[in-house]
Amino acid sequence: MENVSGSLLQLQGLSLSDSSVLPVFYGSLLSYVLMMLVNLGNCVVILRDRSLHQPMYLLLCNLCLNDIIGGTDILPRLLSDLLRAPEERLISYSACATQAFVAQIFGTTSHTVLMIMAFDRYVAICNPLHYSTIMSGRMIVKLIASAWGVAFVMVGILIGLSLRLSRCRSLVTNPYCDNASLFKLSCESTLINNVYGLLYTALLLSASIGSILLTYVKITLVCLRGHSSSLNRRALQTCSTHLLVYLLLLLSGIMVITLHRFPEYTEQRKLVSIVLFTGPGAVNPIIYGVQCRDIRRAWARLWAPLSMRKRNK
């Protein structure tokens, strides 16, 4: 049994050789800066441009905000720990619990927001005449509130079950705190935690994959029956963007869950879990920026005054 000193915990961090610490540090820092720039940029562009105050772009703004929260929860602390000796990677129990809560909120909200975005695309393509009525401002507020509200309730129960346990260990065998890190600090039975965690994961993934699959099957059927090249082209553009973003999130999560089953790949799992917080967050806004003409035009309008000022100087 490990010695538990006060409320301080020790993060195991990444096991890196001296020659690889700086490359990993600068690579992670570059990923974080890129993620922040593109997500903040998209949020600013969407909020300041009234032509983008549409359901799809407001939902995209929420996705960007969630990526900012998730990356900021993990990366700054991780970057500082990379430059510290292993025995100096200390974190308070309350800070660890907060980090775990925010990390779980990030993962859950990523799925719930993408589910709502799929529903929005379904209404826009399959029922365009009633789109403005169905996806009204009030409906968008309700959908966004439900995306975050469901995440807070589910994650609140998940983390609460871990916080009720007494601690007999002080080593967090991970580069950051997550729910598994919290209940592994206890020597009590974690059966309830494991059962709820399994149900939580199964419910989230089945609802996410099921709704996305059902939505795209219906969209495909509508496109096949419609025989409209313009409709098919619009559907392909908007749906391929959303589907690519969803697959990136799903693939990253599945890799982390799969590597948990193979202890010999512990370090690889740690790296993949970090990429989960930076990779999709940095790539998603770029994908939408490249695919969506309205966002490209809004970016151009944003940069036009800045470029004119530089020329005048």
Rank of each mutant, 00 (worst) to 15 (best):
R311H: 07
L58E: 07
E2S: 09
L302Y: 09
V24W: 10
R269G: 11
P128H: 05
L8Y: 12
S92C: 05
T98M: 14
C43V: 13
L185W: 01
S20Y: 05
L259H: 08
T258C: 15
L40N: 06
G70S: 11
S15D: 12
C126T: 06
L276Y: 15
F101V: 08
L78C: 00
N232E: 14
Y196H: 06
L250W: 09
I125M: 07
Q54E: 13
T215I: 01
T109G: 01
R138W: 12
I192L: 14
S110F: 04
K218M: 14
L199N: 00
R301W: 01
H242K: 09
A124R: 15
I105K: 04
C43N: 07
A298L: 11
P55R: 02
A97K: 01
A97Y: 01
S7M: 13
V123D: 05
T190R: 09
F277S: 05
K313Y: 07
R77N: 02
V38Q: 03
L204A: 06
I125C: 00
L250A: 07
R297W: 09
V21Q: 11
S162M: 04
W148L: 11
S230M: 08
S273I: 01
Y265V: 09
N174Q: 15
P280M: 07
F152P: 03
N194G: 00
H111Y: 14
S19W: 11
V123E: 04
R269P: 04
R297L: 09
A282W: 11
N3A: 09
W303T: 15
A282V: 07
S5A: 09
V38P: 06
S228I: 06
K313V: 02
P263A: 04
I74H: 09
L171P: 11
N62R: 01
I159H: 07
L16I: 07
L198S: 15
S186T: 02
L259K: 04
G197N: 03
R296H: 13
Y288F: 13
V172N: 00
Y176V: 08
V153R: 09
Y122Q: 09
P86T: 00
R311C: 02
H111T: 13
N62H: 04
L199S: 00
R311A: 00
L58P: 05
Q54T: 12
R225V: 00
S307I: 05
R121P: 12
L30K: 02
S162G: 02
S208I: 01
L244V: 10
I286T: 03
C292F: 15
V153K: 06
R301M: 02
M35W: 11
L52N: 02
